[in-house]
């Protein structure tokens, strides 16, 4: 299309409905958008890698702390959340198929199930986080943390169980050794909350994206030549799933 084309106002001219003016063909538009999404996913992977490297350094330096700290994470809840995310990835991939084939009602259903799974994931995460908060299983700098070096939190009643397990673990240690251990336990939970927290923020952003897709799908906007948004949204969602696939064994399954 030459720039000499004077009819900026004429929207009756001959190009497919969903083709933006700065692309020649739908295929070029699709490939361009997808390339941009992959470039974004690359930055996401590098973004998370900082925390994964921090995890690796701390775990290699203090393996006994990570082994002990992992006992306070609920494997059943972690595994349930893994399955929930895998199912949501399946429904997201199915949604792309539905959009490609123009199956609007199935598309809406699959997006809705994806959203439901994401909510379930965050719900389970909330149960885990609130338990840790009440038990004082937090990073060392937190005033409510068992591992606060200046004034360790002392939980009462039912919430004291985990605290007693920690006390038992450090009972036979020298004073400086137990201090070091408690300090590193604070680091373990620091890494835990940073990694799962950053991942959780991504889940929340994904939920916003899926809600937006659901709204557009309800208006019947998606079809065989216009499914890029669903495709790219699903790619983001799969990345969130990929990160969790590594987080689950690294945090919950330390033997």
């Amino acid at each position: 299309m030459s720039s000499a084309h004077p009819t900026a106002d004429a929207h009756g001219h001959d190009h497919p409905k969903h083709l933006a003016h700065h692309y020649d063909t739908l295929e070029q538009q699709f490939e361009g958008n997808k390339l941009g999404m992959w470039a974004f996913l690359l930055t996401e992977i590098l973004f998370f890698s900082g925390l994964f490297v921090a995890y690796s350094v701390l775990r290699s330096n203090y393996p006994e702390v990570f082994e002990f700290g992992s006992k306070f994470l609920n494997t059943t809840l972690g595994a349930t959340n893994t399955i929930v995310l895998l199912v949501s990835s399946f429904t997201a991939a199915s949604a792309v198929r539905n959009a490609q084939l123009g199956e609007t009602s199935k598309l809406k259903m699959n997006l809705f199930i994806t959203l439901l799974c994401a909510s379930a994931f965050m719900g389970i995460k909330y149960v885990e986080y609130s338990h840790k908060y009440h038990a004082g299983l937090l990073w060392g700098g937190n005033a409510h943390s068992l591992f606060n070096p200046e004034a360790p939190y002392v939980p009462h009643g039912d919430h004291a169980t985990d605290s007693l397990v920690v006390q038992e673990r450090i009972a036979g240690m020298e004073v400086d050794e137990s201090r070091m251990f408690m300090r590193n336990m604070g680091r373990f939970f620091g890494v835990y909350f940073c990694l799962t927290g950053l991942h959780g923020i991504h889940v929340l952003i994904g939920m916003v994206v899926i809600t937006w897709l659901l709204r557009r799908a309800s208006r019947g906007e998606f079809g065989p030549d216009n499914f890029t948004a669903v495709d790219l949204g699903a790619l983001y969602w799969h990345l969130v799933d990929l990160i969790w696939i590594f987080l689950f064994p690294l945090l919950y399954l330390i033997a």
Binding site: A93, Q100, F227, T228
Partner: peptide, 12 residues
Amino acid sequence: HGLGHVLPVSTL
């Protein structure tokens, strides 16, 4: 026809 590759439900 068209853009991208459509995955069969069985594969998914």
